[in-house]
Nucleic acid binder design. Sequence first.
DNA 1: ACTATACTGAACTGAATGGTTCAGTATAGT
DNA 2: ACTATACTGAACCATTCAGTTCAGTATAGT
Lengths: 113, 113
Amino acid sequence: MVQYSISNLDASFGALADPTRRGVLEQLGQADASITTLAEMFQMTLTGMKKHVGVLEQAGLVCTEKVGRVRTCKLGLRGLEEEAVWIERHHQLWATRFNELDAILEELKQKEK
Amino acid sequence: MVQYSISNLDASFGALADPTRRGVLEQLGQADASITTLAEMFQMTLTGMKKHVGVLEQAGLVCTEKVGRVRTCKLGLRGLEEEAVWIERHHQLWATRFNELDAILEELKQKEK
DNA sequence: ACTATACTGAACTGAATGGTTCAGTATAGT
DNA sequence: ACTATACTGAACCATTCAGTTCAGTATAGT
């Protein structure tokens, strides 16, 4: 059985799998925003948006702070580092696989001659 | 309202959100495998594994070919390019935001003097 | 021809998701 | 004090998801 290490990749890739949430990240990349603002931008109820923000917060991609009655959302402190690393590593796996394939094809070509 | 462009990021990030599926990709990075092999490795029924492979296939991360009675799974032709690009772009958004923050902090420090 | 293997598909289950409404609490402004 | 704003939480709903079982079909080996 293959053992996979525990990480929050589940949470973060899960968070990124939703277009609304990717949109929220995009937005927060431009400027911080309140739940209300985000809800309006994505035509959604406050409650709905709060859930999305909750998911992003769980994944560590967003952090929020409530001052007075408004909760302001910003990009989280850690910024997709882990995800970038994972993707990059696998990018290389792909490259390796296809290089091997190339090598094999190359070999076959040689034999043809 | 914010408009977001259509893409298969939903499918691919969704596919990556599951540890079993990330494990399968990892495995296929080492060697091609049949559904049976994968099912055994991840202690799962054939049917269950076939569904996971289906999800990965939909996302274009895996491709399969059935010859005789065995279906062989390999890494898909396109390899996380789109995802890498998305992540990288947002990596930069983060950087920008935090650079701005640095700038502001720097400014505040100056005034203190 | 017979048997074992490898997959496939339909149908079912429990839990998670993405959204809603509605009733509440807390703060801001007049 | 009163009213509007901003959020919060519980409860609900339909859909999807991750997995199962079970009954099939097709191919490989003897």
